[in-house]
Design a protein around this nucleic acid. Structure first.
Lengths: 189, 189
DNA sequence: TAAAAGTGTTGACCTAGAACAACAGTTTTG
DNA sequence: CAAAACTGTTGTTCTAGGTCAACACTTTTA
């Protein structure tokens, strides 16, 4: 049950076995179906989720009612509505499983307690932030000035999982184009 | 000379006077002209800069030779090519003053030494990362699905300094539109 | 398991904004 | 301070990609 998280902690840190077990003990196991909502638009993000299995999506809805995908997270990574988790303001986004998933959830209070108690765990948080920052940067800047074809090539290169695991519709909204355009582009390679 | 940085540290942390002075002693004062390049495309970011006065821009150049602005930083904030600073890989972007500026620079080694020695300074680094992350998020998601007019309104609301201090050309490239389009939109409010 | 709802693909049309160009200021340079 | 280089604005033209619609599949629901 904690094996994925354990090996994550073991490869990322030098925490000993007891510490790892102690950290894991704060996580609650969570089975979900497809399309289950974990965080709603007006919620405060109260938990951090570690993905054991499955795929989780962050998205919003425009005033016209259209879903726009922001981010996809896969097994072996942490995910939450981070700005809300940090500042405890309304998320203004949804967190949703898009496949049957197994998650480990930790409360915000426990998470920060661990950050305070274990410098090695704090390091993981810093890494999450650094990585999140870098991925966000790459995403913005990688797309700037790209036409539709270039965006698709970019995503194939930088996030190869995406087009394979995610529906065309969701991928298209992530890429900022209509499903029709994405479909046409894929047919031209 | 260190007054802006000092008051920044004092409002953000509970560091005592000695610690603040000690931290400041690691920064080197730097006067620059307009349009001076601080970090080049293939450089590794070796310094963090605190802006005493002036405005600093992060940008890249497309293969067609067009400059694309990524980020603008103003007095009282830290700036560098952060992904490069973190990973010590080539910046793949330029850091440039766009006004006469007064900067305080600290070397990467000293910066991380301070992060390690002063938990309160580490907290500042965490805040920089969190804020950087949140701003980047807002920027991506704020723009998603927006047409040109909406982007301009967004930037007026969320980064009011931008249109006032930055040339139309730079602002347009930040917003992902041509200078002509930005000009036309401004004329319609 | 039949009906209903959702998804991917393709075709026809249309529009937001890019590209190009001309010109008036403004700033830089020698 | 004259010439050269840059910037902002506006008009004209052109195109990438959006919208709408039709259809075949697939998935969900009752």
């Amino acid at each position: 049950m904690f094996s994925v998280l354990k090996s994550f902690l073991e490869t990322k840190t030098t925490l000993n076995n007891d510490a790892v077990t102690h950290i894991c003990s704060h996580f609650k196991f969570l089975q979900t179906n497809r399309n289950e909502i974990l965080i709603r638009y007006n919620d405060l993000a109260k938990h951090y989720y570690f993905i054991n299995k499955g795929c989780v999506r962050l998205f919003t809805i425009t005033k016209e009612g259209q879903e726009i995908s922001r981010y996809f997270a896969y097994e072996g990574t942490f995910v939450t509505a981070l700005p809300s988790f940090i500042d405890q303001k309304p998320a203004e986004e949804f967190l949703q499983t898009i496949e049957k998933a197994e998650l480990l959830s930790i409360s915000r209070a426990d998470f920060y307690k661990l950050v305070q108690s274990f410098p090695e765990f704090a390091k993981i948080y810093t890494e999450i932030l650094e990585l999140g920052f870098i991925v966000a940067q790459k995403r913005i800047y990688g797309f700037q000035g790209f036409d539709a074809m270039e965006k698709v090539k970019w995503v194939i290169k930088n996030q190869p999982q995406l087009l394979l695991r995610v529906s065309n519709k969701m991928a298209a909204s992530y890429l900022g184009m209509s499903p029709a355009t994405l479909s046409r582009i894929k047919s031209k390679l």
